[in-house]
Design a protein around this nucleic acid. Structure first.
Lengths: 253, 253
DNA sequence: GCAAGAAATGAATCGTGGTTCACTCATGTG
DNA sequence: CACATGAGTGAACCACGATTCATTTCTTGC
């Protein structure tokens, strides 16, 4: 009975599998899901396209796994942030902080993971992050409502609102210039905004992450006028209170 | 010089053009952009595919126009809501209300217009709505900040946050069951949430739309416990304050 | 070294969907 | 009516990208 996979062989195969997964993730980060064709992934992993199908049944399966790995890793961090001690309010602030910091840091991956348009594909899998994140927030908000720490808002709707808001605010204009803004400041702004959306504007009590307090401190700081320098992109020179036609950029026709 | 288009001919051509546009919009509403291939549009408009290219240079151009028409129509309504009298706070509430009500009513169109993943295509055009809507809110928020009616938040970031939040909260789970929730209630909840996110939780003063006040009134209504019946989808039976693992639905692997 | 499989390969295949084009039909003009 | 020219047609074409498969190249056990 000639041939039976030996240890060395199995090891090499495992390595190949990992190489393909890595190549896929790298490509997603560099070029988005759209730029990650099977051919490119295979090339990057230094195998032939045919070999790819020896390790994965389809492209979808591959990316389902890629997204799952990244998603799981990140959701775990968020979950931890949600459970480490402190008041609900502090925990919410921490969760937002963890998310915002990660998204700003690993912008490309975060974008591919939760914001990039991908029609069919592993789209289902991809939504796991959003859903999971929403679930964490929903739990925290429900806890706050139950403890009468905030107005009796609907946890599900509010959680959805917050997640959508964060994603848009952080990843919305995925313009070329990435580090154009003071990250720290942006994170604090978002923490404060979420805090206000859920708890209103009474001052944050405890300590812990302090992020919210810091940002809100800026707020009561009489020196600031508005605009505050954080702009998301150096768009309009002034945050004019003027109407600013919403139809700009839309051809009259 | 034989032949020169007569009036009747020109009229018929204009009609054909409109038929194609209508067919395209209808298809987008019914099947999303993905289900709107040139062949389908042509068939629906009762012309041959070749004829289509006699009226539009490309599929992209067609949908750019389709999106533009819908976008412009809707943005105008929002802009009007933003300018009709009342305090800034009231106007913001009205803008949110107009948006939310429209999105809930014309769910499919709204989804295709601002939430459906569409990779390349007329994607640029499509973003016009989001951007325009953001611009309106940014203006209003800047006005509020200038008048010191709210904390000196960053108008751009806050506007992005609000738009993203609304889109997610209204169109996020575009599940089959559309009218599963009390629309009015959902609108009020959102108006209240946005109001809180921008102005904190002091009571809304004026009158006008009153939507926010109504929703906030519910809030101080001692009878409601939490959950409030509005859930976005009949997910978990109870909005348990418990952790609720965020990793649910993600295979261990 | 050698035969029996397994693994790797990449060119060919297939499906999808936008775009073209050779042709027919309709409509004006003299 | 006869002809010129635009309009309409739909089958063919093309690009792109996932998947397959006949062929070649290892691996293993003797």
């Amino acid at each position: 009975m000639p041939y039976r996979p030996t240890h060395r062989t199995l090891t090499r195969q495992a390595e190949t599998r990992r190489r393909i997964l890595d190549a896929a993730q790298t490509l997603v980060i560099e070029a988005g899901y759209r730029g990650a064709q099977v051919a490119s992934v295979a090339k990057r992993a230094e195998v032939a396209t045919g070999t790819f199908y020896r390790y994965f049944p389809s492209k979808d399966e591959l990316f389902a796994e890629v997204f799952q790995l990244a998603t799981r890793r990140e959701l775990e961090r968020v979950a931890i942030a949600a459970h480490r001690g402190g008041s609900v309010r502090q925990r919410i602030a921490r969760v937002v902080e963890v998310f915002a910091r990660w998204a700003l840091q690993e912008r490309s991956l975060a974008y591919a993971l939760i914001a990039e348009p991908l029609d069919s594909a592993a789209g289902q899998e991809r939504q796991a992050y959003r859903r999971g994140y929403q679930r964490v927030l929903k739990g925290l908000i429900a806890e706050a409502v139950a403890g009468e720490l905030c107005a009796p808002v609907d946890p599900a709707i509010t959680a959805a609102f917050v997640v959508g808001g964060l994603v848009e605010a952080v990843l919305g204009p995925l313009s070329p210039e990435a580090g154009s803004t003071d990250q720290e400041l942006q994170v604090n702004t978002l923490v404060a905004t979420v805090d206000r959306a859920i708890f209103g504007d009474s001052a944050l009590e405890g300590s812990a992450s302090m992020a919210a307090e810091r940002a809100m401190g800026r707020v009561t700081d009489g020196s600031s006028k508005k605009g505050s320098g954080v702009d998301g992109r150096g768009s309009s020179p002034r945050g004019e209170a003027a109407p600013a036609s919403p139809l700009k950029g839309i051809k009259p026709l």
